[in-house]
Design a binder for these strands. Structure first.
Lengths: 135, 135
DNA sequence: ATACCTGCAAACGATTTGCAAGGGG
DNA sequence: CCCCTTGCAAATCGTTTGCAGGTAT
């Protein structure tokens, strides 16, 4: 019953890590796959998914669920919240809302490990450009 | 360009609504399907999904995404946050965290429609009963 | 009557997994 | 060398959708 086996450092893992970390934004697995392919054109989708999982387990990458249920990956280190635009679907970092109170939860016997706060609304670009929302 | 067509009140819609509203908890579509089947054994999965969508659009039901990406349906009226146990996967209502500040977002030109806050941790039951987490 | 709805089953998109070959440590 | 890791493709899983017949209004 070994608790964790040694992590091998493969070229694929490196490519996936770089793909997540590059640029801003929060790529989906599919986007990570395409970015990683630019670095290594033989890497497969399955390997990207497997390595993303590893990075998440190691805490090197965070996962956020967009409102549509798709995973987005986030290499930011600093804790922060997110804003999801319900018009264009973009997902952006926003500063962490003020520290939230967990004492009620703890008094119930719950142990809080983290939280996920996503604001929902319309982003500045959509408000500026799109007036054709409800047609 | 009609904005909304007349909503028909079918036996199926009624069954789905009752299935979501009954009991506590936040049923998944699959659970709603099973509950609805007890009321009407011919109702189909597709119809359940379609009617859940309608209830959500009407604002009679809310959707929450569990951390695993699966939709859960919530007939509560009062706004509240959620707690997802990463051990047993349960999803429970918790009181709304104190009002959060949206002024920064608004100063960026974002229009905030809502938010979704999910605490992640270990629920009281799991803490009490399970010591076999990391084995 | 006429749209909207339903049941069924096939289609879908995201993610996972089994397998045999490949490659880090 | 051993066994973790890969590429490939098929399998899952939740959810959506096309179609032909059914049913509220």
């Amino acid at each position: 019953m070994k608790l964790r086996q040694t992590q091998r450092h493969t070229r694929q893992l490196q490519a996936v890590w770089e793909a997540v970390a590059e640029g801003a934004g929060h790529p989906t697995a599919e986007e990570v796959f395409h970015r990683a392919r630019q670095r290594m054109r033989t890497i497969s989708r399955g390997t990207v998914y497997r390595n993303l999982q590893k990075l998440v387990q190691q805490g090197r990458v965070f996962v956020i669920r967009a409102p549509d249920g798709v995973q987005h990956f986030d290499a930011s280190v600093e804790p922060h919240d997110h804003f999801a635009c319900c018009t264009c679907g973009c997902l952006v970092d926003v500063p962490l809302a003020r520290e939230l109170d967990t004492s009620t939860l703890e008094s119930w016997g719950y142990s809080v490990v983290g939280r996920q706060l996503t604001w929902i609304g319309i982003c500045a670009d959509c408000r500026a450009g799109d007036r054709r929302a409800a047609s």
